[in-house]
Write a protein that binds this DNA or RNA. Structure first.
Lengths: 145, 145
DNA sequence: TTAGTTGTAACTATTGACATTACAACTAAT
DNA sequence: ATTAGTTGTAATGTCAATAGTTACAACTAA
């Protein structure tokens, strides 16, 4: 199972917003055309990013822009914004293990710290990369075409 | 999105196999009762673990056992055994970004190394934990009940 | 031969992701 | 005030993966 494409799409969208901000109004249509998905998918995604304080979206006049400095937005911020956070855990525990079995009633306690450490390792790595880093890579690559 | 419960169920199953190996034949029925899922789900899972060389399952006579030393089985081995590996990547990239857009045609190149680093961080953490570690925790917790 | 078990196919239900259509709400420009 | 362009969102549909269930052939050991 994989992390949904919303995450990579979100990064793509943010790079677009930053790249085109001086040239044109960055509408959901423009973003949809770059990502190659339906504009409604982009609008829903922008709502999630907006709720997380990452972007501003203007109703009516239209257009999206970054809501805070690029170096203050980490990949983890984006991940948390677009992936179901109520779930909280990266791992899915089977419900209702048999409490009459010594393994069944303790498996949660046995695994929880280990699973948390794994998830933390991933999240720490995500936290260490900002959109500023990504933009710097992107400018280099696009500039060298 | 979450990693499927097959992963935590697999660990649960391995802990059961090791815990009960001297007391009884560890059948899919027994495992199913501890995990509290259908026995067929367990059998399918055991097939995946068997294909990965982690367990042996006896047809006919019945019963599952570990196929190699506990300290040679890491959580990553289990993860790779039960999660779709063809997919390979933890992250799901949107297909067909627009090649006419400078961002669209470069987004893959921009993100790939970053995403690999994140996945590696997770896998390294998984690699550092063996079933021997988990069993040692489990024995402590179960013994102290 | 039989009882117990695994291996697997077939079918179903459920869930989440994603696509699509439609339209109300809103803003700015004219 | 009207209009054109845009966002916000509901409703609906499709698809894939997970997981539950039934059924039964294949196998082994007693």
């Amino acid at each position: 199972m994989q992390i949904s494409s919303r995450f990579t799409i979100a990064v793509h969208v943010l790079v677009c917003i930053e790249t085109f901000k001086n040239d044109r109004k960055v509408t959901s249509e423009l973003l949809a055309s770059s990502v190659n998905v339906n504009a409604v998918v982009i609008r829903r995604l922008l709502q999630q990013l907006k709720a997380a304080g990452i972007v501003n979206v203007a109703r009516g006049s239209g257009g999206a822009e970054m809501a805070k400095p690029l170096e203050d937005i980490t990949l983890l911020d984006i991940y948390n914004a677009v992936e179901c956070v109520e779930c909280g855990s990266l791992f899915h525990f089977h419900e209702n293990p048999n409490a009459l079995c010594p393994v069944g009633r303790n498996i949660h306690a046995v695994m929880d710290t280990r699973l948390d450490k794994i998830q933390n390792a991933m999240e720490n790595e995500m936290k260490s990369v900002t959109i500023a880093d990504i933009m710097s890579d992107a400018e280099k690559i696009i500039g060298s075409e």
